[in-house]
């Protein structure tokens, strides 16, 4: 599974962090960092993160 975040859309809302904390985090500066190739066991969480992103910046490939 590959996670792609359109950083031109991302506005650091952090909703993805609540949905998939093992994949997405906000750094101390409030900006997003994420694991682009997470374990497939986390697929449901990542799908949820993509759903709740206010800017719809997250897509899941593969």
């Amino acid at each position: 599974m590959k996670v792609v975040v359109d950083t031109t859309k991302c506005k650091d809302h952090g909703q993805c962090v609540f949905a998939a904390p093992d994949v997405f985090q906000l750094g101390d500066d409030g900006h997003l960092v994420f694991d682009a190739e997470p374990d497939d066991a986390l697929r449901d969480d990542v799908e949820e993160a993509a759903d709740v992103c206010p800017l719809q910046a997250i897509s899941v490939e593969g």
Binding site: D12, H13, G14, V17, F18, L26, D28, D29, G30, H31
Partner: peptide, 10 residues
Amino acid sequence: GGPATAAKTA
């Protein structure tokens, strides 16, 4: 406020 403040709601 700024993004860091919004993040404090977590």
